[in-house]
């Protein structure tokens, strides 16, 4: 047996011993809720075992997670949407305005024809509708929200205050970053200098994003560790 095999067996024995002690002392109730806590703790530790090395236990739990997540969403979509709105409303005739569901249901069914190569061309009807509707809805909204509404703060009058300083920094940053991304002119001389300022702004923003990302990932680790230490092991005060 390899060292990893001994580690694996040792982990299982330790996990079993800890749970036996927790059940014996009454820290975890010997009911379905307690079983759920033990199962969740085992699955959590199995996933974290990847940090040591990729292993079959991690792979099994990873696939289990994907399967359960997909099944959960399928169950929700079936009961909330397909059963409630199409089967019960359109087919069984419950609720008013049932015929307004006919065309959307037909378009949705046409999308599924992509699975059959001989009639896959029918799905283009549904996709054309989706693309056309999407473009018509999206373009004016995005221009309004992401371009016009974002330009307005850059165009406010500059004052001798912290707000004014913020505006100057934002203005310099916006112009410098846009110059950096303008590749039709060679980045030399004045253009090169301004684009270097733009690079600094980009790097500072990427650094801020990275810092936030680290905080986000740590928050998830903290959540899981809280579960392991409090709900499972009961060692937190």
């Amino acid at each position: 047996m390899t060292r990893d095999s001994y580690l694996f067996i040792g982990f299982l024995l330790l996990f079993a011993a800890v749970n036996a002690a927790l059940l014996a002392t009454g820290a975890i109730a010997a009911d379905w809720t307690g079983f759920g806590v033990i199962l969740a703790a085992g699955l959590t530790l199995s996933l974290y075992s990847f940090l040591y090395k990729d292993n079959p236990l991690y792979k099994f739990v990873e696939h289990l997670f994907v399967g359960v997540a997909a099944a959960y969403v399928l169950g929700l979509v079936w009961y909330n949407t397909l059963l409630a709105e199409i089967v019960n409303s359109l087919i069984l005739g419950e609720g008013k305005d049932r015929w307004s569901l006919l065309m959307p249901s037909l378009l949705g069914a046409l999308m599924l024809t992509r699975l059959v190569p001989r009639i896959a061309w029918l799905s283009r009807i549904a996709f054309a509708f989706v693309v056309g509707l999407g473009a018509g809805l999206t373009i004016p909204r995005y221009i309004s929200s992401f371009i016009l509404a974002q330009m307005e703060p850059s165009l406010r009058p500059i004052t001798w205050s912290i707000e004014g300083l913020n505006l100057v920094i934002i203005l310099v940053g916006v112009v410098a970053v846009m110059v950096y991304f303008f590749f039709s002119v060679e980045h030399t001389g004045v253009v090169g200098g301004v684009s270097k300022v733009g690079i600094w702004f980009l790097m500072i923003s990427f650094g801020a994003s990275f810092g936030y990302t680290v905080m986000a990932r740590l928050s998830l680790l903290i959540g899981r560790t809280q579960f392991l230490l409090d709900d499972w092991l009961h060692v937190m005060k």
Partner: peptide, 17 residues
């Protein structure tokens, strides 16, 4: 939002959206 999303949303704070 999650911390990952926060930097992307600061422009909307500045614009008042």
């Amino acid at each position: 939002c999650t911390a990952v999303m926060a930097p992307d949303l600061f422009p909307f704070l500045q614009s008042g959206q």
